[in-house]
Design a protein around this nucleic acid. Structure first.
Lengths: 241, 241
DNA sequence: GAACTCTTGTAAACACCGTTCACTGAAACC
DNA sequence: GGTTTCAGTGAACGGTGTTTACAAGAGTTC
């Protein structure tokens, strides 16, 4: 079973511990606490040893971002699986709520991944859940058929590229979808929804609402209702919860 | 005229230079480059001297945030003043576009102020432009009269507090507004608009759209159109530009 | 089993960081 | 003129990322 040599196993184990220590430091004390020396201290080794595993502190932080994205995707998939009804609307709602819940429970991770002006996040990394769900969503007939000509023509090219990404994401999971069902108008609305979802969650995590919100959850739910209505879900469907 | 003593003048000048150097470092090389020693080097002094002006590195960063907010407010006011028409809709559009423009031109500043999980930003700091404009906006009759009962009851208390903030912000500038004109429904829509505006701008600055957007401006304009429509502006008014 | 290479770690060093502290010299005050 | 106030210095402490030379064990080859 274990084809790996003893050395490879040890190396993999150490690498796992490095990631784990880095993650713990981030969660406990924020980005600035994720220090090579602090990580090394947790493992009982010295800082230069870490250079056998990562080229630089920056590379280690990038790895940390990837790990966070993967973990978040797992969490969202789990929440999605816990949504028993087959209603796509309910599933969308569940994932959006799960995203907010995850961000509030992991503010440091959220800040690192979603609010750093660094290299563009590979779409596969964090977005696979969203992508897959968005693909199923706009493929389902529950979504109103927004006409393509609602969308400014300059956006066609970018949205068409996104369309391809979505169709690939959906087809990976076995489902194939007709080209015309997944039109640009629908895709445009998905992007608009991502703007609102991300906007609300980021504002809440960073405390940047223009006034102190004592109970942000119903405000989020309210936004979600409006979003699902705007995207074209019938009210009776979104009311299923 | 200059009542200040020579020492006070020198001190004020040095403090100005400190802020300026800190800002330059942030813009040139990002948050992590804003170092006490780097600032001191720019001024030709030593790092401990900075402790005569700020209690700590963190306090200096807070000051930097305040300066950034003030500068951004100035920029937005300038763009607002450059909007000749008296149409509130055009003014809202102008400020929103100016906010995006400012954020894209100052990504490091934007990240520091709007995407750090630190103490809540005093509303007066960055929000005065938004607040004043939002106050005028919802006071104007162009905005559809959203009924209060559209708003979940749990939000009433928070929105009422925001209502008070808005009315104060508007009345500072001489305009008084009737209580019923500025109802909770309208305020709720202002908050929703802030979510979308912030969401789009942050996603663009941080490159977190789920696909590469080759030309984000029309996407923003499109979002803005939708936002202004949703908030209740008639199309012919928002079409004035 | 001996000789060899590859890998993983160490220790020391360098330059940088925030922060503290004792000290200096000049400005301001009485 | 003597005293106080205060901006600035230099040295120091412990922290950081990173490089370098070196040791020691694991795996391989003969």
């Amino acid at each position: 079973m274990t084809e790996a040599t003893r050395r490879e196993r040890l190396r993999a184990e150490t690498e796992r511990e490095i990631r784990q220590a880095a993650r713990a430091l981030l969660v406990e004390s924020g980005r600035d606490a994720v220090t090579l020396r602090a990580i090394a201290r947790k493992l009982g080794i010295t800082a230069p040893a870490l250079y056998r595993y990562y080229d630089s502190h920056d590379a280690l932080l990038r790895q940390l971002c990837d790990d966070i994205c993967a973990d978040m995707a797992s969490a969202l998939y789990a929440d999605l699986a816990a949504e028993p009804s087959g209603h796509v609307g309910c599933q969308v709602r569940a994932v959006c709520k799960a995203f907010r819940r995850w961000a509030l429970a992991h503010p440091q991770e959220f800040a690192l991944v979603f609010a750093s002006p660094r290299d563009p996040l590979g779409a596969d990394q964090f977005g696979s859940v969203f992508l897959q769900l968005a693909g199923r969503l706009i493929a389902s007939n529950l979504v109103a058929n927004h006409a393509d000509d609602e969308v400014p023509e300059v956006l066609h090219e970018d949205l068409a590229r996104f369309q391809q990404v979505l169709m690939d994401a959906v087809s990976v999971h076995g489902v194939t979808v007709e080209d015309d069902v997944l039109n640009l108008g629908k895709i445009y609305h998905v992007v608009q929804s991502w703007v609102r979802l991300y906007g609300h969650v980021a504002l809440e995590v960073f405390g940047r609402f223009p006034f102190t919100v004592s109970n942000p959850e119903p405000m989020f739910d309210s936004m979600l209702d409006q979003m699902l209505t705007d995207i074209g879900f019938q009210e009776d469907d979104s009311a299923v919860h």
